[in-house]
Simulated assay, not measured.
Amino acid sequence: MFLHNRLGPSELKARLSAEKFQRCTVSFYRYVKIENPQELRDELYLYWDHMQCYGRVYIAHEGINAQMSVPEHFADDFITHLETVPGMKNMPMKWAVEDDGLSFLKLVVKVRPKIVADGLKDEVFDVTNVGTRLSPMEFHDMAQQDDVIVVDMRNSYESEVGHFQKAICPDVSTFREEVEIVVDQLQNQKDKKILLYCTGGVRCEKASAWMRHHGFSDVNQLHGGVIAYSHEIKKAGLPSQFIGKNFVFDDRLGERITEDIISHCHQCGNPCDHHTNCTYDPCHKLVIQCDVCAEKYEGCCSDDCYHKFAQEKDSTAEGKVEVKVETEI
């Protein structure tokens, strides 16, 4: 039996569109010692593949980090099984805020050196010395106080479409850049109350430990991240301090938390918060693009990519015509 996907993109899309059931998207993580990541990887792949689960899962000696699409009728079985896996009992599950069932096309389970590519050397600091975990309601109340510093621990392409109203949002593209800039920027405010947040909470585990290692005395983190916060705030009927969209790392590329559109199309500058990947494959750059520009540039991020994409299309079309003519002759 093959323990990996063997279908192409078109087959995967056809398989998903043919389904007669609903799916739900869930994410979870845990830092826990895993003796044999490869063995666990194979066991989980077999079980989840049998249940027609899709998603992206990273397993390392330090733990597990997963974002998954689970058939709705298997959701209870999925959780029940996870409870039997050593180290996974009582796993906090973050269910999607907005879910169209199209978050993933296939199941990918990989063994990695780390469950988050943070670029940090774990041996130089105590990764277990994390900040105080705040419930969504605790974070909501504290974030509105004047004497706290709220820090977005995500990349700039995430924070540009949505963030907490008073948050510091560093202009970075990697987690390693983020933690270094935050420590440097707040060097003279080490006694202040620091509130960290990210998508689901996993990046804040390492970020808070890194900050404590550098002498910050009052580091706190949003437990469960923006996903958990949104659920709890809606349940309580309170106005969200997080505005806009929460960027997610699956095919949806975002969940709307509030109706605020705080970003702009990268091409025309009109209000927009829809992320897309450039249609021209050699580029595939992640950009914010409005419907008008998407039609005008056929999903390409720039004039240069659009012209190259058009040339490739014309070349492909010409090739098909030639083959057809030769066949008829």
Score class of each variant (00 low, 15 high):
residue 311 Q to N: 08
residue 52 Q to W: 11
residue 261 I to P: 00
residue 294 A to M: 00
residue 240 S to D: 10
residue 103 S to I: 01
residue 312 E to F: 00
residue 57 V to W: 07
residue 224 G to P: 08
residue 140 H to I: 03
residue 87 G to T: 11
residue 18 A to Y: 06
residue 5 N to I: 10
residue 315 S to E: 07
residue 141 D to I: 08
residue 233 I to F: 01
residue 185 Q to K: 13
residue 230 S to N: 11
residue 162 G to M: 05
residue 35 E to K: 15
residue 294 A to S: 08
residue 186 L to M: 06
residue 100 D to R: 03
residue 118 D to K: 01
residue 190 K to W: 08
residue 298 E to P: 00
residue 188 N to E: 12
residue 170 P to V: 07
residue 176 R to Y: 12
residue 297 Y to H: 06
residue 105 L to D: 12
residue 280 Y to P: 02
residue 55 G to R: 11
residue 270 N to V: 13
residue 143 A to L: 01
residue 132 T to Q: 09
residue 12 L to K: 12
residue 113 P to V: 03
residue 193 K to S: 11
residue 62 E to L: 10
residue 209 A to Y: 08
residue 146 D to W: 01
residue 53 C to H: 01
residue 260 D to I: 03
residue 91 M to W: 05
residue 7 L to N: 07
residue 14 A to F: 08
residue 294 A to R: 06
residue 84 T to L: 14
residue 123 E to S: 14
residue 79 I to Y: 13
residue 125 F to L: 09
residue 48 W to Y: 12
residue 224 G to L: 07
residue 305 C to D: 08
residue 218 D to F: 04
residue 213 H to A: 15
residue 118 D to W: 02
residue 134 L to H: 04
residue 243 I to L: 13
residue 10 S to V: 14
residue 301 C to T: 01
residue 71 P to C: 00
residue 216 F to S: 09
residue 290 C to I: 04
residue 237 G to M: 00
residue 268 C to L: 09
residue 88 M to K: 03
residue 328 E to M: 13
residue 267 Q to N: 15
residue 307 H to G: 01
residue 248 V to Y: 02
residue 282 P to I: 00
residue 321 V to F: 13
residue 132 T to N: 07
residue 65 N to F: 11
residue 225 G to T: 03
residue 69 S to D: 13
residue 3 L to Q: 11
residue 176 R to T: 09
residue 240 S to L: 09
residue 223 H to M: 02
residue 86 P to A: 03
residue 117 A to M: 14
residue 271 P to Q: 05
residue 6 R to A: 00
residue 68 M to D: 03
residue 233 I to K: 00
residue 127 V to H: 01
residue 78 F to A: 10
residue 85 V to Q: 09
residue 145 Q to L: 11
residue 57 V to R: 06
residue 99 D to I: 04
residue 327 T to R: 14
residue 270 N to W: 02
residue 207 A to Y: 04
residue 188 N to F: 05
residue 258 T to A: 07
residue 194 I to T: 04
residue 174 T to V: 05
residue 118 D to L: 04
residue 27 S to F: 02
residue 191 D to S: 14
residue 219 V to P: 03
residue 120 L to K: 02
residue 221 Q to G: 03
residue 222 L to D: 03
residue 136 P to A: 08
residue 43 E to N: 12
residue 79 I to S: 09
residue 53 C to Q: 04
residue 118 D to I: 04
residue 80 T to P: 00
residue 135 S to Q: 02
residue 83 E to A: 10
residue 205 E to T: 04
residue 282 P to W: 00
residue 143 A to T: 10
residue 122 D to I: 05
residue 196 L to P: 01
residue 329 I to T: 09
residue 160 E to V: 13
residue 121 K to S: 15
residue 274 H to G: 03
residue 18 A to W: 09
residue 45 Y to R: 09
residue 11 E to S: 12
